[in-house]
Design a protein around this nucleic acid. Structure first.
Lengths: 254, 254
DNA sequence: CCTGTCGTTCCGATGGTTGGAACGACGTAT
DNA sequence: ATACGTCGTTCCAACCATCGGAACGACAGG
C-alpha cells in the first residue's frame, strides 16, 4: 500500500490512523474522518467501533455522533513520558524559570530524531509564542534540539545528519557542516541559540539540555521568545539561567 | 470471540492489546508478550512490527530486542487530557495542598464510570500511598469518585449504579442504597471521606470535586493518607482545605 | 553436548476484512 | 412543498490479507 512496503497488519494501521486523526480533531464525525483519511465511510465506521470496543474512543456528542478520546490514552501517554518522572521533576524549575524571565518555557523530550513538546509555562507578556503540547519538532531545527545534539557523541550527531535535515523555514540549517559547526559552538557555549527562526517563523529560542546521571541528554528546556523581543545581548544571561535550571533538573533524576 | 460479541476489527483489537501491554511492561520482549496476551509468538511479532511502522513503538534495547513506547503516545495522551488544561491548572493548587498537609494529593479525571489518576504530589512522609499514574480507579469506590457523584444529578448516579458496583476490597460499597446514602452525606458535607479502604487496602482518602463553570464535575482532588495515620477528627480540616483547593481550580477553568 | 528459550522468518489455508450500495433522518436551497 | 445534499448506520458476498504452526540460528545454562 504505502511505498515503505513493509509487513504490517493493514487493518491495524488504518485503525491507528483513525485514532490519531480523532485525537487531533476531536470531536469529529465519521464522514469528516473518511474524507481526511481517504477511506470508505463504512470502513471508518468499523474502525471507530473497534476503537470504542478497545476503550480508546467514545461518542462524546450523542446528538450528532461526534467521536473523541477516552481517558485511556492518558495513562499510555504518561507511561511514554516515563511515568511523568522527568516531566514532574522539571515543572517546578520551569515555573521558576518562566517567572524569572517572564517568557514562555517549553520542555521538549527527545525521541530519536524528533522532539515532543510535553510541557509549557507561559510568561505574562501579551505577545507570546505558542505551540500545542504534543507537537513534534525537528531536533536539528530547534534550540532545544541543538542543545541535545551538543551533548551527544559525534557519531550520533552524524546519524541524525544522515537521517536527513529537512527545511522548515528558509533559515533552517540543512547543511551537514553548518550543523556540525553549530553543534561545536553550542558545546563551547553550554547552551543553544536559535535567533534565526529555524523552525517557526518569528520565534527565537535559547536551549539547554537535561541529562540523566550518565550525562546522556533526555530532554531540554527552551526559552521561546518572539523575535521582535529577542535581544542577542541578553543571550548570555538567559542561557546561564536555562542551563542552571536544566542542571538542577538533571541532578534530580535518579 | 469475546462474549460481548460486537463487530470489530479483530486484528486491530489484538494490536491495540499488545500496545497496551507494552505500555504497561516496557521494556518487554516478544515471547513474554505472547505469554501474557496468550497469542502466538508470530502474531505478536507481526503486531509489534505494525505498531513500529505506525510510529507508536520501537525497539529500545537492540541487544535483546526489548520493545517500548515512542513519544507519539505522549501527544495523544495530552490531547485526551484536554491539552493539559485541567492538569496544568490544577498542579499549582496540588502542590500547595500537598505542602500544607504533607500528604499525597492525587488528581483524578472522570471518564464515564471510571477515574484516571493523572497527577500526583507527594508529601515528605516516609510512609506514603502510591498508585501509578494512569491507573484506572472505580468511581464508586474512591473518595474522589464519591465527591464527583455528589455533584451529579440523581439520574446519573443511578446510571453509575446500574452499570454495576464492583467490589475491590471487603469494604467497597456494593449496595445501591448504601451508595445513595453516602452520596447524600457527601453532598451535605461538601467533600467525601473514604476511611474504610474501599479501593486499596490501608488507604484512606478525602475527596473534593473540581467542576466546570456550569457546575459539572470533571475531576477531583484526593488526599491519600495511609490508614494508620488517618485521624477522622482531622477530616473537617482536611476536607475544607481540599474543597478550597478544588474550588480555586474550578474558578480557573474557562 | 544437550536442552530450553530467545527473536525471527516463511508460507499455505482460511475466515476476517473490505467497501459499494442502500437506508432513514435531517437541514437547506429551490 | 419539493428536491437535494449530507449525515450516521447497516448489510453482505467476494476476496485477499491475516493467521499460526513449523522451522531457523543464536545464545545461556546445566
Amino acid at each position: 500500500m504505502s511505498r515503505a512496503g513493509e509487513t504490517g497488519v493493514q487493518s491495524a494501521l488504518s485503525t491507528l490512523r483513525i485514532l490519531e486523526e480523532v485525537a487531533r480533531r476531536q470531536p469529529v464525525g465519521v464522514s469528516e474522518l473518511a474524507r481526511i483519511a481517504d477511506m470508505p465511510k463504512s470502513s471508518v465506521q468499523r474502525y471507530l467501533a473497534t476503537l470504542q470496543q478497545a476503550g480508546w474512543l467514545r461518542i462524546v456528542d450523542t446528538e450528532r455522533a461526534r467521536w473523541g478520546l477516552t481517558a485511556k490514552p492518558i495513562g499510555i501517554g504518561l507511561r511514554a513520558a516515563g511515568e511523568g518522572g522527568l516531566r514532574e521533576a522539571a515543572l517546578p524549575a520551569m515555573r521558576a524559570l518562566s517567572r524569572e524571565i517572564n517568557e514562555t518555557v517549553h520542555l521538549a523530550m527527545r525521541d530519536e530524531n524528533s522532539l515532543v513538546i510535553v510541557a509549557r509555562r507561559d510568561g505574562t507578556q501579551t505577545v507570546r509564542t505558542y505551540v500545542e503540547l504534543g507537537t513534534i519538532a525537528p531536533i536539528h531545527g530547534t534550540a532545544s534540539g541543538l542543545s541535545i545534539l551538543a551533548r551527544l557523541p559525534d557519531a550520533e550527531v552524524d546519524a541524525v545528519i544522515a537521517a536527513g535535515l529537512a527545511a522548515h523555514t528558509g533559515t533552517t540549517i540543512v547543511d551537514a557542516d553548518t550543523l556540525r559547526a553549530e553543534v561545536a559552538a553550542t558545546r563551547e557555549r553550554g547552551y543553544a541559540i536559535n535567533a534565526a527562526s529555524w523552525w517557526r517563523p518569528h520565534v527565537a529560542a535559547i536551549g539547554a539540555a537535561i541529562t540523566d546521571r550518565t550525562g546522556r541528554p533526555l530532554a531540554a528546556f527552551a526559552l521561546s521568545i518572539p523575535t521582535v523581543r529577542f535581544d542577542p545581548a541578553d543571550a548570555p544571561r538567559l542561557g546561564a539561567l536555562a542551563v542552571a535550571a536544566a542542571d538542577q533538573v538533571s541532578d534530580l533524576l535518579d
